[in-house]
Design a binder for these strands. Structure first.
Ligand code: MN
Ligand code: MN
Ligand code: ZN
Ligand code: ZN
Lengths: 141, 141
DNA sequence: TTTCATAAATGTAATGATTACAAAATTAAA
DNA sequence: TTTAATTTTGTAATCATTACATTTATGAAA
């Protein structure tokens, strides 16, 4: 749980003016590693900030992304999710419960064929399957 | 370039009745490894099949996917692309020209941490960057 | 403090891809 | 041929995202 001073400072470091809405949105992402959609962020924060507009959430998340403060996670068609974690990691989506899990992988060992003389800027590893919890639920039926 | 007899047979093998539209759509995917969107498939085939409906393209591609005949490639938000290649490979999207390239990688060497007791059904590796051709174009400016 | 300019947030309308659905056309069986 | 089932088609509905004009907040100058 980061305090607001720190959040403000991190926004400034990314060249983003720390408005109240921006602070609360970034704080939400940092404290809830659930890779939320715009709608999820909006619904949660609208309780705290009744005047919040969904457009602000769209604009803010896009702004964060452009300033490389967060990344979008594109594991499922028809929904963009956001992630404030900045270490290298992959994403697993459980096709049963819909949850998204982080995982680590040995990215340094990855070798590519067919990309000679290409510039690689961003690598994403996505896996779909059934999470442990859903797997065990299924067993007990 | 596969002949229609073969395409028909492959559809049947996947438990899909080979209608004329389905044959032409699958043929298009096999002959054009460009990871097209629904709209691209539609526009190309509409010239040959003037009565073709975009809904048919949507339905057919979804049907193919459900029968594991093709995969969707989800490298860019706001557009679903399709791929009839069934060997394991990753996708590179050039953020300059928009083209999508296949590449091979050493998937057998990949190790994961955090997915113990998870069931892994499908792994996708996506990379964004600048392709060789665009890189060279940029140099000459 | 007031004035003014700039930036940010808001609300509504427009867009665009996808899906739902009912009607028409095709195919296969009887 | 008649009938039923499947497929295709066209249009309308949906839903996430974006565009845009208006309002609000912020901050510096006077
Ligand atoms: Mn993550
Ligand atoms: Mn491919
Ligand atoms: Zn699950
Ligand atoms: Zn390129």
């Amino acid at each position: 749980m980061k305090i607001i001073q720190n959040i403000s400072a991190e926004l400034l470091k990314a060249d983003i003016k720390p408005s109240w809405q921006r602070i609360k949105i970034y704080e939400f992402l940092l404290n809830n590693n659930i890779h939320p959609t715009v709608d999820t962020v909006y619904k949660k924060l609208a309780k705290e900030i009744p005047t919040l507009s969904k457009t602000t959430v769209y604009n803010t998340l896009k702004l964060f992304e452009e300033h490389h403060l967060i990344k979008n996670v594109n594991i499922e068609e028809n929904e963009i999710r956001y992630d404030a974690q900045n270490h290298i990691h992959g994403h697993f989506k459980c096709t049963q419960c819909g949850k998204i899990f982080d995982f680590k992988y040995n990215y340094k060992d990855l070798k590519y064929k067919g990309l000679d003389d290409f510039i690689l800027n961003q690598t994403d590893v996505m896996i779909k399957g059934i999470c442990k919890s859903c797997k065990e639920k299924n067993k007990s039926n």
